[in-house]
Design a protein around this nucleic acid. Structure first.
Lengths: 265, 265
DNA sequence: CACGTAATACCCCGATTGGGGTAGTTTTTG
DNA sequence: CAAAAACTACCCCAATCGGGGTATTACGTG
């Protein structure tokens, strides 16, 4: 069974666990995981409370598309990442699969089509774990299309060891946070604020609070029903808000809404 | 009335008409037109039979977005330009408005949202005129959103003088063609071929003739009914082709189709 | 000739979008 | 307080899309 660790695995695990407070942790972690499953990217990031995400460690199978996407991600596209916008994980952290937590229309959203799809990644597992300072540690594993989605066994294995992984992740991120220049934190404007000010300044339009929220969810890839559910309102109400947004912005389709904000995000 | 030419207009007209065989034609043409209507871009191009379009003369109101879009256009996006893909104009040439000749879903198409919309252009008038060598001369006038679409009077004026403009356009393009290095013509792969080979090579999928045609029209911004009309088939048949395309390419939405080819086009 | 592929046309369905309207309640603001 | 703005919920509708199916008619190539 995948859950069983060979002697070598045990050694790898020990090396990873004992190195969380050092720079070699990522190396050992990668070795550990590589022995148990196949992945094409491995990232350790930190979602900060009011700053842009930090990439602590990253390994990508060399691809121009992947590196370009990574740059765009850190530059602002992260705001539409389902893992980034996912509500705070439980105290102990948790493991999620992209397809589980993605908004219902995420895979036809502009973010997916423009940033994600061209990386050829087809599956992603994310571990999220709250840190002491209020930020969130994020471990991401993903697979390219040619390798297919994660297999059942690989998922079982990950799920089985996710408590350990989360613990290591937390420990390592706390270590990295100490050596991080707090002041170098680039402030991150939340998506809602971007929408508001962009609409106001560029288009001279004042969006109401609810309209901004609906626009935000729509940009993240929620359908009307899904956005309504998230905001605790009736489906028709979300529709009304969207209609008002379109009217105010002088557009008439979801695609135009995306194109209005894609340069800013 | 807008059709009336002042004495100064007459002088401008004469200058333009007498300079079609020289490099100063564009300058005089711009002066002539500027006196009669407002525009934010003025382009003289030549759509070649089997080469990429040539930009003979171009004037853009300085905008980073405009210049970027122009580069993308010449690099390949021209293939989705409604004027470019418009069937051959009559012998004497003709004048068209973008909204008249655009595919029904053009304004929600990827081309429009990615290339056209961000230029902030909201209206475009194109004169098309066949040349001797089989290529097509194209005069384009467009307006930015802040100026609004062309006014009725401006359109009347243009329409009234379009025979003259077309004649000048033809004359000038023939002049430019003489001084053009025939061999420098960059060969242009037609869209259909790009779709075919891209699907075959990158995705290992053989699209049939009809499927390729449907994919082409969809990428250009035609809906199923519109594509069916263009291909002389029933609406349902076009739908079947599209369904087969999706199945073969392993996708499930129009957005993914766009994203598959957007890097190639 | 026969068989496979391509192409055609039609049926069904559910889901979503975009746009129109009416109406009631809550909140904000002058 | 009273009016305006925001929010809510529901009604209607047409259009499109994506996916399922069946069936008939070419068209070629072996």
């Amino acid at each position: 069974m995948a859950e069983n660790l060979s002697r070598r695995d045990v050694i790898r695990l020990r090396k990873a666990m004992t190195s969380t407070q050092s720079d070699s942790f990522f190396y050992h972690l990668r070795n550990l995981l590589r022995a148990k499953l196949h992945f094409d990217t491995l990232l350790i990031m930190q979602f900060q409370k009011s700053g842009t995400p930090r990439l602590h460690n990253g390994w990508l199978r060399r691809t121009a598309a992947l590196e370009g996407a990574m740059r765009q991600y850190l530059a602002g596209a992260y705001r539409l990442d389902p893992f980034y916008q996912y509500p705070a994980p439980p105290q102990d952290g948790a493991m999620y699969r992209l397809s589980e937590i993605a908004p219902d229309r995420f895979f036809t959203s502009e973010y997916y089509l423009r940033y994600y799809r061209k990386t050829q990644l087809c599956d992603e597992i994310g571990l999220l774990c709250p840190l002491e300072n209020g930020s969130i540690a994020h471990l991401s594993l993903s697979r390219r299309a040619q390798a297919g989605p994660f297999k059942r066994k690989e998922l079982q294995c990950l799920r089985h060891y996710s408590p350990l992984l989360l613990e290591m992740l937390r420990s390592h991120c706390n270590f990295r946070a100490q050596h991080m220049d707090q002041n170098a934190e680039t402030p991150s404007r939340p998506l809602s604020q971007i929408i508001r000010t962009e609409a106001a300044e560029t288009l001279g339009v004042k969006l109401t609070k609810r309209e901004t929220q609906v626009a935000e969810l729509v940009l993240q890839g929620h359908s009307n029903p899904s956005a309504a559910l998230k905001l605790g309102m009736a489906y028709e109400t979300a529709k009304v808000h969207r209609r008002n947004i379109y009217r105010k912005l002088g557009i008439s389709s979801q695609g135009e809404l995306f194109s209005l904000f894609k340069d800013v995000i």
